[in-house]
Every structure is written in C-alpha cells, then in structure tokens.
Design a protein around this nucleic acid. Structure first.
Length: 699
DNA sequence: TCTGGGGTCCTACAACAA
DNA sequence: TCTGTTGTTGTAGGACCC
C-alpha cells in the first residue's frame, strides 16, 4: 500500500469481441459473442451490445443464443488476440519495466518503478496517455484503474469500464469499499460469497466489522486473513514482472459423453501427448502427472502420480496417465478428460542421468551403479499402496525401442485404422494403434522428434473433417509438420452435413455472423500446408479406425458416413465397417450407432485431397479471394461458404457466397487492427498486399 | 441441451520420518 | 523400545480468476 496512486491496472474492454469488431467493420455496433460454438460451449466474451441482451461471459452458449439470437457468434482467434496483446504490452513496458500481465487483456504496471509517475497527477496523465496510445495503435479501448495497491487499482478499472479512467486517492479506500458487495474483493467467488451471506455479511464494511478471527473461523486461516486485510483496504502485494508457470495441462470436453473405455483411454493418451508438446514448447519438464476426469454428472475427479524425477518424455507421461485412468470408474460416461503436469523443472531426470553417466565415464562410478541409474529412468515412485508399478515404468532402452516402433508405423496405419480395435479385451495395447498415441515420438536420442514448428499460427494440420484428429506421424517418426496442436479443436468439431445445425449460406445481413460449427475444416488444406499428401493424412487414422465415418462426437449418421466415404482419397484409411454401420467407430462396443454413437476419433478417411469433399470454413476466419480480396467467413454449410469482403480500416463490405472448395478462396492470417502498425508481430502479415494472400498452400 | 480451458492457491488428510 | 509430536510429502478436492 503506497501513498500515491501509482499502481496502474489496465483492462481492455470486451477484448475478444472488440478485436473481432475492429477486424470486421460490418460488426461494429452490433452484438458479437465469442466463445465455443459446440453444444457445450460457453461465452468467452460478449460485446457491450450483446451484454444488453443479458449475455455475459461464462454463460452457456445455448443460453446466449436464446437471449440474443441475432448476434454474431464467432470462435475465438487467439492468434489475433495474442498479436494485439503484444502491442498493448509493449506500450505498457514503455511506462515501466515492472509489468505484470494477468491475461491477454489485463495487466498491472508499477508506474513508480518506471519513473513515469510519482503522484496522482502524474499517474493520471500517464493513464490517459496510455489509453490514447492503445486506441491509436490497436483501435481498441481499454479501461485504466489507478490506486496505491493492486486490489484497488483493479477495482478502479472495473469502475472505469468501459473506456474510462478512475483514480482512487489513497486514504479514501475504506469509505469507497465499505458499501460495496463482498464479491468485488479478489478471492470472493460464488461459493465464498454465499458462505459470507449466510453468516450475515454482504458488504465489505460487514467483513471489516466482523474482524479477522471471525473470518478465519469461517474461511480458514489464509483466506480469512487475506480477506480481512483486503476489507480494511490493506494490500501490499508487489507488481511482479515475471512469474514461472507451475503447471501445464490440457483438457477436452466432449460434445457427447464417452462411454467406451477404449476410447477414453485413447483420449487420455492423446491428451498426454499434447500436454508434453506444450511442456516441451515451454522448455520445461514436470514430475507429477495429473489426470482429470469429469463424469457425466459433472462430478470431477483428479488422480495424480509423482515420478522419481521430472520428465518431458511423452511415453512416460502417457503411461502414467493411463495408469491413473485405471483407477477411475468411468461407467456412466465421461464428459471431460484432462492431463496435466506439475512440479515443473528446467531439466529432466534423463538430463541428470546423462550427466551422471558422463561423470561415471570419467571413472567416478562403478559399472553396477551405472546399470542401476539407467534402469531407473522413467520409473515411477512407489504408489500409495506400497507397490511399485513396475510394469508400467519405462526404461530408457524401452523408450527408445518404442520410439522406433512408433515411427515405423504410419505406413501401415491406414489399414490398421480401418480394422478398428477389438473391444472387450482390456489388454488391448494402444501402441498397436497406428496413428494413435502409440505412434508418439519418444525423446530425441531415444528416437523422438520434436514438433517441427511451434504453433504454426494456430493452424493444426492433418485434422479430420470433423475437426478431430490425431495428426499422425511422419514416416520418419516425427511429429506432423507444423507441430503445435495437432487437433483441430477436436471434440467440438461437428460434421456440417451430419450435424445439421449449420446454417445455409446466409443472405447478406440476414444474420450477422455465422454459427457454423465445423471447426475442423483445416483438414482440407492440411496437406498443402505441410507438404503432406493425402496418403499421410490417411495414415493418421484413429485407433479404432472410425476414419471419416463416425465423427468424433457421434454425429456420424449414416448419411455422413456415406459422404465421407465417397470423399476418402486414395491412401486414406477409410471408415471402418462399424462406422458405416451407423457411426460407432468401435467394432464390438455394441456400437449400434444409436443416438450419439460415439465414433472413435481419427481422421483417417476423408482427408485432404479427397476428391469431392468440400473444404470447411470456420466462422470468423480470415480469408482472401483471388478476385475480391480480403474478407472473413460469415457462414458455411452445404458445400458453400459465405464471405464478407472487408478488412480493418475498410468500410463495411459486401457478402458473396462461393463453393466451399473454390480454388480462388484461401485462408489468411489476421491483419493489424490499425493498418500499417509497426508493432504488429513480424510473423503476421501487416497488409494484404505484402502478404500475398495468407500464405497457406492449397491442398 | 446448462455449466470451456488453463491456470493458481488453499485445505484436509494420510503416510512417513525424525 | 515404544509413544507422541511435528514437519514434510503426496494426494485429492474445491474455489477462484480471466
């Protein structure tokens, strides 16, 4: 708590939605909702126009659609938001080196540390200058709070919204906070708020009056003490510029609950792979593997296992996650699965052993010790029951062998994928599934290959038409070309044809925005972008060989299966018979393909280059047409795509409809919201003319 | 048709070692 | 040697935030 209001909190106004409105002039002044468009999606951000209909963040998307049926519904485009966020953070760092980002659109700045303000007048001037700079550089508005502490600065920026600045003079905190709801204090959410309400405390003044002892009694020591201090207006938390991540995790919610144990296991292993990719991308390793399972009734379980040392080996993490799954009852259905790693370190157990081995090579250790050390790699700590699960542990040699095997599989995987996995045999080894988790690369030196190129501008490759898709492996055993998240927003991918629900190409202005749920169109261009042909994509068949058949979430109606089959190109795995039987990708699961018969994942079948399968386009995505120029996808369906031709800085544009596979139409990267900005990330185009069309090769 | 994804922090409890 | 206490570690769950 300082005497001058020199802690600044910036919060961009309705950030995602505002960025979309800036990028799409025809949406300005109209309700825009950004979030997951699948059946279980929630609202990430609603524009102020949409908020007037009662739409707010974290609201189920279905509810938002009921409240604001005419709003534009868009999927988030993180590449755009990250780029704008970088511009904003750069402006903040001009004010002070002490900038603490809280998220893409929010940060604290210590103005005093940067010498940009020492009193209220200076702070206000700096805040106003910042707001005007942000508007000039990004075209967006942000709200600024200034106070002597982080808590109050954040409360001030909330008061300032939208597009304002509020300064809280030190000394006025208690008076200002007293009448406000306890919910404005950080750490008081719905549960704590209700708890306090039942205890007769609804305002901050009530908390202050209750005293620390009472709050500790109600909420526990840490929470009670900190809340009491906050209620008194005390908060001396410093602005911290750098914070190390403490965990890395990935999770997926499925459109339809998973019942098939084999599928659940496959998903867990796939998530483990993605988690390790992220872990490695951050240059970290982790020691504790955590499995998260949300069941059909929304109850959530976590199971964790701590290894002997940190690892970034996909095999080790995958197998730990699979072991953890064995202890979880999934009967009744699984709604969400997640895999995470905590206890992060900058080195791996293998590093330590390598170092130790080098030392021993210099004669510092005996041969017997060497054997012991190598054998321990990847082994897990004894479990709580006191039994070491040796069967699941993997030694270095084992991992290396497996890596080799994984790499060798893709060539055959199409066929395997088509056969599906025998079910009813719990001993089924995922490693036998081509393109499935089995094929995961192991470590370099143990045969692994790193992802080729980070995130690749958010364009997953070799994804299935339904949006799912383990990307499969290159024949060299490496990861698919572009690396990054190989899954194209999988679980939410909905087969356009089968899923219904996706509108006709829209008439101009008949409905702003689009509700297309086909997020997985990437498959259509994956081959071209990565240099992989249809054959490779086919090799990515999922374990059960659902292929293009049963979509990942059970949208695999017979109709869809037939379409996908027809579209399967040579070299693709093709849908399994089970898929053909009605969408259940797993033979033997009683895969009746009944309602929501969950097909196994796996792009397999209809993949890029597949003759006749239209490409899929995501609502809101940037595109470029050879003749009409830059635009964005307003809607798609029934083999057509509707594009509005406009870009940041242009007047609202006109709408045209094309065949989805129109060769003149191609995807494009986001442009700066204010044309010609030098602070726009170098990896993204600064203008269409420079960029030459977005750069994605056609399949 | 309710309820995402990626985090952080805290609490409680059991096991174990000193 | 046995018992009680205390600290640490691992595990699980809950709340909260954006």
């Amino acid at each position: 708590m300082r005497a001058s209001p020199t802690i600044l909190h910036l919060d961009m106004d309705a950030f995602f939605a505002a960025a979309e409105q800036a990028a799409k002039p025809s949406l300005r002044g109209k309700p825009v909702v950004v979030g997951g468009l699948g059946p279980r999606g929630v609202v990430a951000t609603a524009s102020y126009e949409a908020r007037r209909f009662g739409v707010h963040s974290a609201m189920p998307m279905a509810q938002a659609r009921r409240l604001a049926p005419n709003a534009a519904y868009l999927v988030p485009r993180f590449s755009l938001y990250r780029a704008v966020s970088e511009q904003v953070m750069r402006l903040l760092r001009e004010l002070s080196p002490l900038v603490e980002p809280l998220s893409l659109d929010e940060a604290f700045v210590d103005l005093e540390a940067g010498g940009s303000a020492h009193d209220a007048a200076g702070a206000r001037a700096a805040g106003e200058r910042l707001r005007s700079d942000i508007r000039a550089v990004t075209g967006l508005t942000g709200s600024v709070g200034l106070a002597g502490s982080k808590m109050l600065a954040k409360i001030a920026s909330e008061e300032a919204k939208p597009d304002g600045l509020v300064l809280i003079e030190p000394g006025t905190e208690r008076e200002l906070l007293g009448p406000k709801s306890v919910r404005i204090l950080p750490g008081v959410g719905p549960a704590t708020g209700e708890h306090l309400r039942r205890a007769g405390m609804s305002t901050v003044a009530d908390l202050a009056a209750a005293g620390e002892d009472e709050l500790v009694r109600l909420l526990g020591k840490a929470h009670g003490e900190s809340l009491h201090r906050m209620a008194m207006g005390y908060d001396d938390r410093p602005v911290v510029a750098e914070r190390d991540a403490k965990s890395v995790s990935v999770e997926d919610t499925f459109d339809v609950d998973l019942h098939d144990r084999v599928r659940v296991r496959w998903e867990v292993e796939r998530l483990a792979e993605r988690c390790v990719q992220r872990l490695r991308g951050a240059g970290r390793s982790g020691r504790t593997v955590v499995l998260k399972v949300r069941r059909y009734d929304f109850s959530t379980l976590t199971r964790s296992e701590t290894l002997r040392g940190p690892t970034d080996d996909p095999v080790v993490v995958r197998e730990a996650a699979a072991r953890l799954l064995e202890g979880v009852d999934t009967t009744g259905g699984v709604r969400l699965l997640g895999v995470g790693v905590t206890g992060l370190a900058d080195y791996t157990q293998e590093d330590l052993f390598a170092q130790a081995a080098a030392e021993r090579a210099e004669g510092e250790a005996s041969a017997s010790e060497r054997v012991e050390a190598v054998g321990a790699v990847g082994a897990v700590a004894a479990d709580p029951a006191g039994t070491t699960r040796g069967a699941g542990s993997v030694g270095v040699g084992d991992a290396a062998d497996r890596g080799g095997a994984g790499g060798s599989v893709p060539g055959e995987s199409g066929a395997l994928g088509g056969q599906g996995v025998p079910v009813g045999s719990p001993a089924v080894d995922a490693r036998a599934w081509a393109g499935g988790p089995a094929g995961a690369p192991s470590r370099p030196g143990g045969g692994a290959a790193e992802p080729a190129a980070g995130e690749s501008a958010g364009r997953p490759v070799a994804a299935s038409p339904g949006g799912r898709g383990h990307a499969g492996l290159r024949p060299d055993g490496g990861q698919p070309g572009a690396g990054g998240d190989a899954r194209a927003d999988g679980p939410r991918g909905v087969d356009v044809a089968a899923g219904g629900g996706v509108g006709e190409p829209m008439e101009p202005d008949a409905r702003e925005g689009a509700s297309s749920e086909g997020e997985g169109r990437r498959g259509g261009r994956a081959g071209g972008k990565t240099g992989a042909g249809a054959g490779e994509a086919g090799a990515a068949a999922g374990p059960a060989g659902a292929g293009g058949g049963g979509g990942p979430v059970g949208h695999g109606s017979r109709e869809a299966v037939v379409r996908e089959r027809a579209a399967a190109g040579p070299g693709s795995a093709g849908p399994s018979d089970a898929g053909g039987a009605g969408g259940a990708g797993v033979p033997g699961t009683g895969g009746s393909g009944g309602p929501g018969g969950a097909g196994m994942p796996g792009p397999g079948g209809a993949e890029p280059g597949g003759a006749g399968e239209p490409r899929r386009w995501v609502a809101g995505e940037d595109v470029r047409h050879a003749e009409y120029g830059a635009g964005w996808v307003q809607g798609s369906g029934l083999g057509r795509v509707t594009v509005r031709f406009e870009e940041p800085g242009s007047p609202p544009g006109r709408v045209r409809t094309f065949w989805a596979d129109d060769p003149d139409l191609e995807p494009s990267d986001p442009l700066p919201l204010v044309p010609g900005q030098s602070s726009w990330p170098a990896s993204l185009p600064k203008s269409r003319s420079v960029e030459g069309g977005g750069g994605s090769a056609r399949p």
